[in-house]
């Protein structure tokens, strides 16, 4: 069998020989090299039709539930009336685009989105790195394992549960206010105060994502060669210098890739969590683009207007991830693709 594998592997994959042998080892054997250019769809279908049957449902699924909605953004340029098709009734050009550009409410939520996104990126993103480095300094495997198990747990909680925790802890009779009254200050009705919304949002985000976020950094840390530390120690580097000159450069590619991914989702700030945590009293700082779209479209029924804002948001997100990737590629040589 080993010999067989060897010969198969030497044939270029584009020539059409299934590396796995698949279904046709018995059918018609590897095609001669010169036939590469004539390897047509007819031939491909004849030899691999069973594999293609595996693709029928998933591809149909992707088209209907992923690509049709993308095309559905056309409704941003067409008027939608109840009962009309999902693509709207008649062309109205940039009517809805102009509408949101001149909508002061839109710019409020746009600003809120940027502030909340930036806060999340600046505060939450570096913490898993710090936590991973701290876990990395432990010498007791048992302690490390327990700490990992505990800190990963919040990741598996539904956002509804996280919101529930927030309500419980910040309630007037909750733990946070008990601490505040214990030190002699007045209790704060956190959920009704718009100046507290961002703090609460970011804190709950830290609680939920930081632990699980260490996994990829810890994985990167295991790939750093122990001999590097050995050598540094012999050269007289202390622990701090070892961390700075060996550990951090070792996980830099991981940091960059995760940063790109985070920038890409920057505009999509935890929409579901905001929806659960905000209320009309905290709209001033809590309302973000996604929640505004939700209210405009689903509560007020202005679907075309909602779609126009959604399209704008998606395009910004796409631009962000593409440019972050390009910058990372040019400056540090690490990128997503």
């Amino acid at each position: 069998m080993a010999r067989g594998t060897g010969t198969v592997d030497t044939v270029p994959q584009t020539a059409g020989t299934p590396p796995g042998g698949a279904d046709d080892v018995s059918a018609d054997g590897p095609p001669p090299q010169q036939l590469r250019n004539t390897y047509t769809w007819a031939r491909a279908l004849r030899r691999d039709w069973r594999l293609y049957t595996f693709l029928i449902l998933p591809v149909a699924y992707l088209i209907i539930f992923r690509y049709v909605p993308m095309a559905g953004n056309i409704v941003a340029f067409r008027r939608f009336r109840p009962g009309s098709s999902m693509f709207g009734d008649e062309w109205v050009g940039f009517y809805y685009i102009e509408m949101f550009i001149s909508d002061p409410k839109f710019w409020d939520v746009f600003l809120n989105t940027i502030v909340l996104g930036t806060l999340t990126l600046v505060v939450v993103f570096p913490l898993p790195i710090v936590l991973a480095l701290m876990l990395n300094e432990l010498r007791s495997r048992r302690f490390k394992k327990i700490a990992q198990t505990i800190t990963y747990l919040p990741h598996f909680m539904s956002i509804v549960i996280v919101a529930g925790f927030v309500y419980q802890l910040t309630a007037l009779n909750g733990t946070v206010n008990q601490v505040i009254t214990a030190v002699g200050a007045d209790p704060v009705s956190f959920m009704q105060r718009d100046d507290w919304f961002r703090t609460i949002y970011v804190t709950s985000e830290i609680w939920q994502v930081v632990g699980f976020g260490t996994i990829l950094y810890l994985a990167a840390l295991t790939t750093i060669d122990d001999q590097l530390y050995e050598a540094a120690r012999i050269d007289g580097a202390n622990r701090w210098q070892q961390t700075w000159h060996i550990t951090l450069p070792g996980i830099r590619p991981t940091i960059v890739v995760l940063l790109i991914l985070n920038i890409g989702t920057f505009m999509a700030v935890g929409f579901e969590k905001v929806l659960l945590l905000y209320n009309p009293l905290t709209y001033a700082s809590g309302d973000v683009i996604a929640t505004y779209i939700y209210r405009v479209a689903l509560n007020s029924g202005s679907f075309s207007y909602g779609a126009a804002i959604g399209l704008f948001e998606a395009l910004i997100g796409l631009t962000l991830v593409l440019s972050a990737n390009a910058i990372a590629k040019r400056t540090v040589g690490a990128s997503l693709w």
Binding site: G16, P19, Y39, D48, V59, G72, N73, A297, G306, A307
Partner: peptide, 30 residues
């Protein structure tokens, strides 16, 4: 299966959905 014709097209089809999705309103209408 690396020899599958059209493979990279289908992979691309999947990858695109990671970075761009229809958004709330078109999905809801669909």
């Amino acid at each position: 299966k690396k020899h599958l014709k059209g493979r990279s097209f289908f992979i691309g089809m999947v990858v695109v959905t990671m970075f761009f999705n229809g958004g709330l309103v078109p999905n809801y209408l669909l």
